[in-house]
Structures are given as C-alpha cells and as structure tokens.
Amino acid sequence: MHTLFRFFQRHHVFFLFLILEGIAVTLLIRNNYIQRISFARATGIVSGTIYEQISEWSNYLHLREINRRLVEENAQLRNGSLHSFYRTDSVVRFVYDTAGLRKYVHVPAKVVNSTVNKQYNFLTLNKGEAHNISKDMAVTGPDGIVGIISGVSGHFATVLPVINRNFRISTKFKKNNFYGALTWNGRSYRHAELNEIPLHVPVEVGDTLVVTGFSSSFPEGSPVGTVSHFDKKDGNFYAIEVLLFTDFRNLHHVSVVHDLMKEEQENLEQKITDGL
C-alpha cells in the first residue's frame, strides 16, 4: 500500500495528465451526441457576443465599400422618386405615379479632393463630361446641398461649395417660405449666413432651411441647414447663422443633379429678354 502511494506520488504529474486528457476526450466524444446541443447552446452565448463584436469591427473596415453602394442606391432611388419628374398634367390629383417626364437625374460621384480651411474652398469630383456633367449643375450630399459645378474636364469636375465666399443661393424657411440669400462668411466650415430676412418673420433656433427653386439648379426643397443663432443687428433684417447639414470635413460621396429641363426653361426666359 505504501509503495503504491509512493508510486502515485512520484508519477502524480503523469496521472494528472491522464485525468485531464480523460476529461477532455470525454467532452470530445460526448460532443458528438446529445451533449453537443446543450453545451453549444451555453457556449453560444459567449462566442455569439464575441463574434458580434468582431463583425462590428469588420463592418467598420468595409465602410468604404458599403458607402459606395449606398450612394449608388440613393441615386437610383432619387431617380425614381417623385421630385425627379416633371408632371405633365395640369390637374391636381392625389394619386401619384411615375408617369411623368423625368426632370432630374442624379449621378453619383466621389469627392477626390477638397479643402475646408480656406476662404475660397473647392471640391473635386471623380465624374466629368464623360458622365454628362456640365457647368452649373447642382451637387448634393447625403445630408444636404454641397455646391454648384464650376468646371468640368473629361473625367473630373470641380465644385464651388457652399463654403466658398463666392457661393450664393436663394434659401427659404421650410415652415413659411420666406426667402433670403445664403452666403458664407469664411469663418466656420459648419456655418453659413442667411441675409435679407425681414424682422417681421418669426425665426426660431432650429428652423429648417431649404433651397428655393428660383435661381439655382437645385431641386426645390433640397435641405440646406438649420438656424443655429440669430440676432436683429442691422436695420430691418435679421443676421441669421445657419448650421449646414453637410459636414464638408466628412464628405465623401455626393450626387450631381442633372436638371433635364433647365435648358428649355432658360431658352424660353432668354427669348423674353431678347424680345424686350
């Protein structure tokens, strides 16, 4: 008995090895049967959490590709949406369908170069004449307006963005349609200025501003930004500070809006001018 005890003591490591391997092998073999279900279920909670985290991280790494697809999808959806069409009937109906003439085509483009810290900022897009883009077309981002095409080459286009001191656009309050001119004062790339709003207009912080359809190539109602600050400074007008929806520092994908009826409209207006 004593010898047996000494034998076990001397080889305790080996016996522990046998025991632990025995447990492991038992787990392994029983794994093929009923055990598998309950054990896997219990472990599934642990590994499920881990894999969810991993997939979140890998999603982050694939954001570029995901973004590209989303922008394309957006452009496709906008092409199908109502405001891309010019309604041919003059009677107001409440049943909307897409049986109209197309007015807007959205071309997805990627911002390949941009500045935000200058007074006369510019963007460069990776689409140009080859994609039917021409001067003065509107450019919108996922959140709001971006700018106007200012120059085009074969495969690239430059954009005069909202954050350029030469930019000017007619903007109105979404809630009551009072309009004024939106310009940029060169101070912050997140903010623009809205002028020419008379003092009798009720203005509140947080009011949404959209584009009027008057002077620009933007579809009417394209989102611009919200009122972030205002005061009654000079004379009869407000000085309104607008927080732009578009964050130019974080702008990667945009769509260029091709207004198919702009030419027709301009030709007609030109005739009036000529006639006078």
Binding site: F17, E21, L27, T43
Partner: peptide, 16 residues
C-alpha cells in the same frame, strides 16, 4: 474551446 464553440479539441491538444 468555449470561445470557438468546439468541445475538447483544444483542451486535448493543449494538455498534451
């Protein structure tokens, strides 16, 4: 093993 949803493979190999 727990984390990779296997039972015993890694335990057998690691104890060995």
């Amino acid at each position: 093993d727990l984390a990779s949803e296997t039972v015993g493979y890694h335990t057998v190999a690691t104890v060995f």
